[in-house]
Design a protein around this nucleic acid. Structure first.
Lengths: 226, 226
DNA sequence: CGGCGCATCGAACCCAGGGTGGAGACCCGA
DNA sequence: TCGGGTCTCCACCCTGGGTTCGATGCGCCG
């Protein structure tokens, strides 16, 4: 990192905020203000030209708002939202857009610095004042009902279903579970009947919808290297 | 509230942690340890009997784990998860279960106190060390509209794949698309080769992992009523 | 003790699904 | 104009998967 200095770009439509922030941040060790933009369009352009480490982005700005600017810069630089608004809408939207931090404007210099450093270290920083909104979004957002216990499925049947969802054939499942293929077929037929599926393809779909299959791996997880 | 004292219930399977926490919290002004439980079941029972203001809940506990206990107590008392684990799974799950705070076990007394007070004030408190996971959950969770263009799949092939994921047979797909079954087979074979799947079951799994299938409907969506 | 559910196997059957090879029609870019 | 890709279709073969009718051993419960 050059001289270990973190270069920051400021984006805010209010002059006083920009200048004030520049003053405050300029006094901090290890932080350097690379520039300041007055609207989202400018912010994106300057970020790409100046290549700062972090962008402190106001969400309410003319022309292109901070959310959109954040979206465009996500992946290029670290973005920390900085706003007077603490309504859940903007917090969640900002994070969705790719912001890794969220500060309200009554944050102190130390808090801003901590946030910048946290983000630079690969972490995130959310103002305590709005953490509640984030928590709510998580708690209520995705409906979630966890791994609801399947119909009348047996332990073994669930296991077999999981392996089917992993793309294994009957014989592979047999080998994996160290049982005979006849047994596997038996389990398969039983679970097909229970979940009301006609074939293993429908069973796999059921497994994913019932969240019994690990959606983790990349799509083409199976298939040997070469 | 009485004398302005916040009553806290501790839930952790490790004795040293319970006792140590009780010591530390006992020294803090305005906080009183109402009791301590050694497993989730006990935690739920004690919480309902003692009616504490806050429960500090370890997630990894015998009998009933902290997640489940949190779910049961959500709405009754404020729950703060307290764990050594900082993997995204447990953070997100804990918050989904209704926890309003999340602390790792290397939190200091002051941090714990701040978290308790934040939660009591209607806020939330998430350990900075795991905020990243929460942000990721928000950023990647619900949205994901970019139905990323699959491998080298054709428009038609994607369409067929989607119908397969809906549990349709080749002949049903043919009927649905008003084409012959031979054509469907052709499409199927092509897409199987492209995505590296051996059979339609693997293709269905691929469809779900690649988010090409609508996970919307309940698991047993197909199947006529009676 | 008898009955029930679960897991384990076997054998035989049938067919949808997958593999192969080819072909004609269309559109589009070189 | 000539490929190249896509969508459409046909005929043939063959295997895996799903179906049916069994059977055995085990653990649990009334």
């Amino acid at each position: 990192m050059g001289a270990g200095v973190i270069r920051v770009l400021l984006a805010d439509d209010q002059r006083v905020v920009r200048d004030g922030l520049a003053m405050v941040l300029g006094l901090l060790d290890g932080i350097e203000v690379a520039g300041s933009a007055a609207d989202g369009e400018q912010a994106v352009a300057m970020a790409r030209r100046l290549r700062p480490d972090v962008v402190l982005m106001d969400l309410r700005m003319p022309r292109v708002n901070g959310i959109e600017a954040t979206r465009q810069l996500a992946g290029e630089v670290h973005v920390i939202a900085l706003t007077t608004y603490d309504d859940d809408q903007s917090v969640v939207e900002a994070l969705r857009a790719g912001a890794r931090g969220y500060l309200t404007k009554d944050a102190g210099a130390d808090e801003i610095k901590a946030a910048i450093e946290a983000v630079m270290a690969g972490g995130a920083a959310i103002d305590p004042a709005v953490q509640r909104h984030v928590v709510d979004a998580i708690a209520s957002g995705p409906p979630e009902p966890p791994t609801e216990l399947p119909d009348g499925l047996t332990q073994r049947e669930v296991e077999v279903l999981g392996l089917m969802a992993d793309g294994m054939s009957n014989s592979e499942i047999a080998e994996h579970l160290v049982i005979s293929m006849a047994t596997v077929k038996s389990h398969v037929n039983h679970l097909l009947a229970k979940i009301g599926a006609r074939d293993r393809a429908q069973a796999v779909a059921y497994a994913f919808r019932a969240r019994l299959a690990n959606r983790g791996a990349r799509p083409g997880a199976w298939r040997a290297p070469s």
